[in-house]
């Protein structure tokens, strides 16, 4: 009797210690975000006098300032155009390529597959100079179209890799019976494969949207005029120049920038984590 009580006690102590460790790590993860949230409702004077204090008169003024004078309103619209545009093109093209390279026999299929996927392992940072020259030659520097096309090109490899894992898993008996029914490869794709693939396409679309919404590099290199800026580059722009010391308004801008992806994460947490974890196995 006594011994089992000892074991129970030991387990409880161990569980308690573990809970404390998890709590401390959670606090470290949450604290910077919480601090930014509180700061966004303060005045700059309050921030410097008491960095840990709560706002005396919390207002949304910082948010309005960020949206209006901070250009965040325009940036959010630009980011929506660019992200949704890129995701739409990827969602049409990637499943087609993934289906063709996993389910249709054609010449050079192996080479085509490698070409489509190998881009996943290449750092876009390496080719910034020739990529900018390419967009210049196409007349697409400082345009949303140029940005969208670049995002599509560089996000396709992961999207295709992810979709291929799905198409490979479909039993071939399904395909065979459809072929007996006399369906061509296009109508088989449209009528049978595409409806089956929709949940996977949604996962890819969400992950691509978050990645493109958050992307800094391409926007930083290709965009010039603030009226075209997407959210991340506009955020950086807001911290320099006239509003460089307006930290409370910048905090509000940071929160505005993060709201869409955090909402997506709350709704689709499981999907997003599964998709992101795939990166480890995609290799």
């Amino acid at each position: 009797m006594k011994m089992s009580e000892g074991i129970v006690l030991k387990r409880r102590v161990r569980f308690f210690m573990l809970a404390v460790v998890l709590l401390i790590i959670s606090l470290i993860m949450i604290y910077p975000l919480f601090w930014t949230l509180v700061t966004a409702f303060k005045t700059n004077r309050e921030l410097f006098l008491d960095p840990w204090g709560l706002p005396a008169n919390p207002t949304f003024e910082n948010f309005f300032k960020a949206l209006d004078r901070g250009n965040m309103g325009t940036a959010v619209i630009n980011s929506l155009i660019v992200s949704l545009g890129s995701v739409a093109i990827i969602s049409v093209i990637a499943p087609m390529a993934a289906y063709a390279t996993s389910r249709v026999e054609f010449r050079f299929r192996g080479a085509v597959t490698n070409l489509l996927i190998a881009g996943f392992f290449i750092a876009p940072h390496a080719v910034l100079v020739p990529l900018l020259l390419l967009l210049r030659d196409m007349g697409l520097v400082d345009t949303h179209v140029g940005l969208i096309l670049s995002y599509v090109g560089w996000h396709l490899p992961f999207a295709i890799l992810f979709m291929k894992a799905f198409f490979v898993s479909i039993p071939s008996s399904l395909q065979d019976s459809a072929r007996v029914d006399g369906l061509s490869k296009y109508s088989m794709y449209r009528k049978i494969m595409l409806p089956l693939a929709l949940p996977t396409i949604l996962t890819v679309a969400i992950i691509m949207f978050i990645g493109i919404w958050n992307d800094f590099l391409f926007a930083f290199i290709f965009l010039r005029s603030p009226s075209n800026f997407t959210v991340p580059i506009n955020l950086l722009n807001f911290t320099t120049g006239r509003y460089g010391n307006d930290y409370v308004a910048q905090s509000a801008a940071v929160l505005i920038s993060a709201i869409p992806t955090i909402v997506l994460y709350i709704v689709f947490a499981e999907r997003i984590r599964r998709g992101v974890a795939f990166m480890a196995f995609g290799r």
Binding site: M29, L33, W213, N214, V231, I262, L264
Partner: peptide
């Protein structure tokens, strides 16, 4: 603990 990963690197 996964939350920071969905926020933009600039933010």
């Amino acid at each position: 603990i996964f939350l920071p990963y969905v926020i933009s690197s600039v933010a």
